[in-house]
């Protein structure tokens, strides 16, 4: 296969590393990360807790500066958060409790200075997309955990960024809700043609969602394996029972185990 031209790449990192000042001196959180993410792909990064997955995502979001290396998003470096290119969905839904669901989704649009009426329209259609029609005037404390995370996804999509970064968005949810949400996410993704970078420590979730799984080692976080998930789409829950699914999951598990 030929090297893909950078025009097809939504995200590209070259020799990315991150060192921060800990209590006992310098800590190497990430070391020599090279990832090419093609536009429109669903990428999952897995790794043990504390391997720097979140650090990597924060850099992709422009919320943290790398110590060395280069990071390009749609061909341009990310020096600061740029919601026109990248939307972020965090682990905790982190909705603002003083805003209704619709106002939370419209929040990034009001930051941008959009017309109120238009922002509201956009928020309502995003809520409809994530299956929350009729809940627009609820406050976060009136929503269940899964519903909050749906609002959070709607908020991440509100500015229509080509790249969506998701930092363990379903980690706080119970198993059943988590499965439903994963399935929902695939449905939303298939209708919006975004590039998604999704972080998780659940291998089942990783294999179920991904086009490609990147495996990270324990600290300092390095990329130790790359697994193309060739399962057909659209995927259903039954796919988890197939032999191929089990093999892919097992391969990733072996890599993570070796790295400890």
């Amino acid at each position: 296969m030929s090297v893909s031209s950078s025009a097809d790449l939504a995200l590209q990192t070259k020799g990315l590393s991150h060192i921060y000042q800990g209590v006992n001196g310098e800590v190497q959180a990430l070391s020599d990360i090279n990832i090419d993410v093609k536009a429109g792909k669903f990428i999952v990064i897995v790794g043990p807790s504390g391997c720097g997955k979140t650090s990597l995502l924060m850099m992709m979001a422009g919320l943290r500066r790398q110590t060395t290396g280069e990071l390009l998003c749609l061909g341009q470096p990310m020096h600061e958060p740029d919601p026109q290119r990248v939307g972020v969905v965090f682990q905790e839904a982190s909705l603002y409790p003083w805003l209704t669901a619709a106002d939370n989704v419209a929040f990034p649009l009001s930051i941008r200075g959009d017309d109120k009426q238009r922002a509201r329209q956009r928020a309502l259609s995003m809520l409809a997309l994530v299956g929350l029609e009729g809940f627009e005037n609820r406050y976060p404390h009136e929503l269940s955990g899964g519903m909050k995370q749906r609002v959070s996804i709607a908020r991440g999509l509100a500015q229509d960024p080509p790249v969506l970064l998701m930092d363990e968005p379903f980690a706080a949810l119970d198993e059943q809700t988590r499965m439903t949400m994963g399935h929902e996410l695939l449905r939303i993704w298939s209708t919006t043609s975004k590039t998604v970078v999704f972080i998780t420590h659940s291998l089942t979730e990783a294999v179920y969602l991904a086009d490609e799984v990147h495996v990270m080692s324990a600290r300092p976080g390095r990329l130790i394996d790359f697994v193309a998930i060739d399962l057909p789409r659209p995927r259903t829950y039954e796919i988890m029972a197939t032999e191929r699914f089990g093999m892919l999951r097992e391969r990733i598990w072996q890599q993570i185990r070796k790295s400890h």
Binding site: G62, P81, V86, S94, F107, I111, Q159
Partner: peptide, 27 residues
């Protein structure tokens, strides 16, 4: 104030004034 609130606002490109008025004050 939950630092996550400010992180979210920054990820959406909020400047300092917007962070103060739209996040810190209501929170």
């Amino acid at each position: 104030i939950d630092p996550q609130f400010l992180l979210v606002a920054r990820s959406m490109g909020a400047n300092l004034l917007q962070q103060v008025l739209l996040v810190i004050v209501p929170a």
